[in-house]
Design a protein around this nucleic acid. Structure first.
Lengths: 362, 362
DNA sequence: TGTGTCTAGTAAAATGTTTTACTGAGGGGG
DNA sequence: CCCCCTCAGTAAAACATTTTACTAGACACA
């Protein structure tokens, strides 16, 4: 006892049937198994307290039922609401379909040793979800135009053709512009993200400016300041804006953290945020609701982004393994290139205006 | 081509040796392999771009070279500096030894279905690191006095005998008391954590009070307020303290977040934190350094806690699998109970005072 | 010459599944 | 009575490794 774990073989013996039968019952390929036999097998499984081994299960069809979440090697990658929320969403969707989640960090030597490929070849993982991508991650090129199941979460690239799922940042920009205009603001400042590095934040800013222009408001270049998506820099950016044009009536920040930084700057300038200067954020993080006054913002629903990303990747994996079974060994030279039939995942998820108390009608 | 991945068999054929030889080279069990042969094998591996399959590797000796990080189902479990830092530490130490990390969330049905056991039986994972444990997690009982490789990170329990690694919160409490006393403070307020729920925070508070008493300062019960380890509640707690005794000269908060909340409360009361009221925190999170004035605090070095936890668990796993090989099938009835020889991991890591500008000498 | 030991390997079993291709029994139609 | 079909199930191959136990040959020693 204790020497070896209970295996499918033991179950077979215990219930007096063959291995195959047990396996069929286990996988709900019940079609040709009689009710009586099935009962018997299920019974034995229960009696022996049998759990099929994932390792052994994955071996025959080379899949581990595991997904990797890959994050860049930032200071506090996991200590971030944004990542946290997306990861939670991914976790939920994966669990729904019986998949597990691995965590990988794209550190320097991880990338140099091309571990992101190993981890797939390895059978450690059936697919990769990459959060926090930016233009700097040139190694993503290894996935450009290939079959490899990697999906970029909430980001996209102009130069590479990769699977992706993201919030509709352009819609978000338009919503913000419309709302501020509707509330009567024309003298507006904007705290942007790092436009040159992160495409999503560039989308947001561009769409915001364009829609403002359409509605007859011109946003001067000098009233756009980069807040680097952080509270502290958001505060600094806001100070800058208030100095450049003290008559500003509203500020749109590309995320809530910077908007909350703006609150601080406005207070320190002796004014009241949401009253003397209206503030609008983006993301709808938890503290946006708790802030005083409640921050009007655009909900990106990151939890949902994570979940939908995960579902898309899972679908992708399913159709891929399905396909490769049909034409196995048929076409010789498709090594790495995409078959014409294969589709890129490219989804944009809707966003939503959340009206609270930080924007005043003027 | 493309039909099947390159296996150890291909390497063997390519280099004209047996499977065994390749395997031996691969596992650095080189002892009885000649230099020439090894070169040949290594060469073939390179030529064929061969990667051993983790799945197949784990099968024979039933280990996956993977660890699970288990976190409680909190609101934003992953959106927390604390978790983030520890996870980063774990990741690093695991990577060092070639282990991968899985993420698991102890949701309600995860616990009900006892997935935390399945995941081990399953061979999905060789061990579990549990972060964020609290008295509510009664299912930990399933690990009490067993061989199962679970380690509690930065928490402990009175009722169960579990492997654990944590910071020395008692030392932290004493350091804080000593420092404030040395700086001449005798009129002190304390913002605690939820003492009844989290043992570590109770340790901290108890040691703080005791050492203060030893040094001749009595901390009145009414000058201890629970700040629930959050910024917002820390602020509230501080307001409460300032009301109960406006002559307080220093406040010790059980973590940095609450200390920063205290900064806000002090400011809103028209006073200057670090000048009119000294503030001391605990944890040394990144923002403690960036705050104005820089927060004097106690560094818990969570990154290190994560790394050391991981190392301890890995050691545990190694000695366990080593041991089970020796006495396999010898003693019949040890089903689940601990052999006398097996040791509990129980480590306390040193903490360190970080002096900045938030405590004034009086 | 016989015995023993060391070196550099190798053959084969074992790990726990899934899946493919087969089989024997029973029944219906011609 | 023979042929074919379906039903319920099984045997065996495949998956990619590790590990154990064995061996052929070289050499030393008595």
């Amino acid at each position: 006892m204790g020497k070896t774990r209970v295996s499918i073989r033991d179950v077979a013996r215990e219930s007096g049937v063959s291995l195959t039968t047990v396996s069929l019952v286990l996988n709900k390929n019940d079609a040709r198994i009689s009710e009586a036999t099935r009962e018997r097998v299920l019974d034995a499984i229960q009696r022996l307290d049998y759990t099929p081994s994932r390792l052994a299960r994955g071996l025959p069809n080379r899949q581990s039922k595991t997904l990797a979440i890959l994050v860049p090697a930032l200071q506090h990658a996991f200590a971030d609401v944004y990542f946290g929320e997306i990861i939670s969403g991914i976790y939920e969707a994966a669990a729904e379909r019986g998949f597990r989640i691995m965590l990988e960090v794209a550190r320097r030597d991880y990338v140099k040793r091309r571990e992101y490929l190993t981890v797939l070849d390895d059978c450690s993982v059936d697919g990769i979800l990459f959060i926090g991508a930016s233009e700097e991650h040139t190694w993503l090129q290894d996935f450009h135009g290939t079959d490899r199941p990697l999906l970029v979460v909430n980001n996209h690239f102009t130069q590479w053709d990769l699977h992706r799922v993201e919030c509709d940042y352009q819609q978000a920009g338009r919503l913000a512009a419309d709302y501020l205009t509707d509330m009567g603001h024309t003298r507006i400042g904007h705290i942007s993200g790092p436009i040159d590095k992160v495409l999503t934040t560039a989308d947001l800013t561009t769409a915001f400016i364009e829609r403002l222009t359409e509605r007859g408001t011109r946003l001067a270049d000098q009233l756009i300041v980069d807040g680097k998506l952080h509270v502290e820099f958001g505060k600094l950016a806001c100070e800058e804006l208030l100095q450049r044009d003290p008559a500003i009536t509203a500020i749109f920040a590309s995320n809530d953290k910077m908007a909350l930084g703006a609150y601080q700057a406005i207070r320190e300038a002796g004014k009241k945020p949401g009253q003397d200067v209206s503030v609008m954020g983006c993301d709808d993080i938890a503290t946006a609701r708790l802030a005083e006054p409640g921050l009007t913002t655009i909900s990106m629903n990151f939890l949902n982004v994570g979940a939908e990303s995960c579902r898309s990747l899972l679908d992708l994996i399913k159709t891929q393994t399905g396909r490769s079974k049909n034409n196995a060994g048929v076409n010789g030279a498709t090594n790495g290139t995409v078959p014409a039939e294969s589709l890129r995942v490219d989804r944009r998820l809707p966003v939503e205006l959340i009206e609270r108390a930080s924007v005043q009608r003027v």
